[in-house]
């Protein structure tokens, strides 16, 4: 029968082997995590480039069809709706990919580029809204980096209203704390300090959290011509 010393020695070596095995497993997990993080970047970058090209094409179209014709407005509005969905999908993918950002400096670049694209998209929507006689409601929602559960709810409600209004409500959701120049400009122009902050058709309106029907009635105050407001 083993004496105590032998038993202690065997237990120690068992613990040591287990620690080594865990070290190996953790190293493998980190290596795979590193590979996964770097595989995501090109795919996200590719989607972002495509969305930027669509945005540019749509922007060009606003100059080409500058008259307030029903046809050109309907093309511009449907293009805006399509791009909105594309950006939403990309937003979900970028959010999902953010866990291992430590592995890649490229991720932060993508994040910044994406925020620029969203600001551009919002400005474009604003131009189309002006051009087409306020047939759409252009909503910008600003949220902080952390600690705003209501922003999550309100973001989902805006997506719901977009779909329900057949994209006559166009919502852009932007992180107000990214520190990039255009967003800092928006923060200062609209005096953003409380969240969730809504800017509807260029008018800043902080109302805090609202449920879907309250949110719709707030949007309708600034865009009474929308079908959904009738």
């Amino acid at each position: 029968m083993e004496n105590k010393k032998q038993k202690l020695k065997r237990n120690k070596s068992r613990i040591l082997i287990a620690i080594l095995a865990v070290a190996l497993a953790v190293s493998l997990a980190f290596a795979l995590g590193f590979v996964a993080a770097n595989l995501k970047i090109p795919s996200l970058l590719n989607s972002l480039n495509q969305d930027q090209q669509t945005l540019e094409a749509l922007s060009t179209a606003t100059y080409v069809g500058s008259s307030n014709s029903t046809l050109s407005c309907s093309i511009l509005e449907s293009g805006l709706g399509y791009l909105n969905q594309q950006l939403q999908t990309l937003s979900t993918e970028i959010t999902a990919a953010q866990t291992d950002v430590a592995y890649s400096s490229d991720y932060q670049d993508i994040l910044n580029q994406f925020e620029y694209t969203r600001v551009d998209y919002w400005l474009l929507a604003q131009r189309i809204e002006d051009q087409c006689g306020h047939k759409i409601a252009n909503v910008l929602m600003l949220y902080p980096q952390n600690g705003c559960t209501n922003c999550v709810y309100e973001g989902t409600e805006l997506t719901y209203l977009e779909e329900k209004s057949n994209y006559s409500i166009i919502a852009t959701v932007i992180n107000a704390n990214t520190g990039i120049t255009p967003i800092e400009a928006i923060d200062s122009v609209y005096n953003v300090s409380s969240f969730p902050m809504l800017i509807i058709n260029g008018n800043a309106t902080y109302v805090g959290y609202e449920d879907t029907s309250q949110l719709l009635s707030t949007i309708c105050q600034y865009s009474p011509r929308l079908e959904i407001c009738a």
Partner: peptide, 15 residues
């Protein structure tokens, strides 16, 4: 969101 699950694969997922 589930369709984007491949993008959320990271070290913790492998662990």
């Amino acid at each position: 969101e589930m369709l984007s699950i491949m993008f959320s694969v990271d070290t913790l997922s492998f662990l």
